[in-house]
Design a protein around this nucleic acid. Sequence first.
DNA 1: AACGAAGTCAACCGCTAATTT
DNA 2: GAAATTAGCGGTTGACTTCGT
Length: 203
Amino acid sequence: MVYMAPKKESGGTGNKRVVMNRGAWTAEEDRKLSEFIEVHGPKRWRNIATKAGLNRCGKSCRLRWLNYLRPNIKRGNISDEEEDLILRLHKLLGNRWSLIAGRLPGRTDNEIKNYWNSHLSKRINAKEKTREPPPQPVQDVAPPSREGCPEAALPEEDRGATGDGNPCPEFDMNDFFDFSAEGSYGLDWVNKFLELDDNHLNH
DNA sequence: AACGAAGTCAACCGCTAATTT
DNA sequence: GAAATTAGCGGTTGACTTCGT
């Protein structure tokens, strides 16, 4: 699909406003950006934007690189395995797309997010409607402190397997994910996770 | 064939966290 | 330590495509 640039101008204050390119990237812009990053690396995006001769903001360059131009990017055709993994990880992590994407080699957070919003969320909603659980009474008592737990930042409904009343007590997310080693694409953790999840489902 | 509704997805926005000066 | 800059994230927008009537 070819996405055409919206005909908008960038905002900005003052008289001397610089009008940046917006909207869809052209092949020429892609080439400039790729070539520049190949030489200088993906650092200092504002510099990249100006020095590569791109009339774009740094943010836009960064996004373009991360989502499309970066090497080893997979596009489209999300496999059943990947879809299953996304579903399970979302159950576990909530809307933390970058974290989920980090566990799917070649996939970007934006792609996962879009895929979720356009495919999976609807499917989930449809499923939930068919079983319509009785509403839970609202609790006034604050839950125990979850300091240090990455899931603490999630809304209650997204906390999934590690929330209170943990249906999978043998699972400790902090132990499970090595958050200090983001970006490692080892698949051991995947197997471990799927094993645990399968066990849980079979109980 | 024409039209509107729904779906898709690239790109932007606003915000926070991390890093640098 | 404060201020400025940069990086990164999730939510949202909107142009285009596809589908249903």
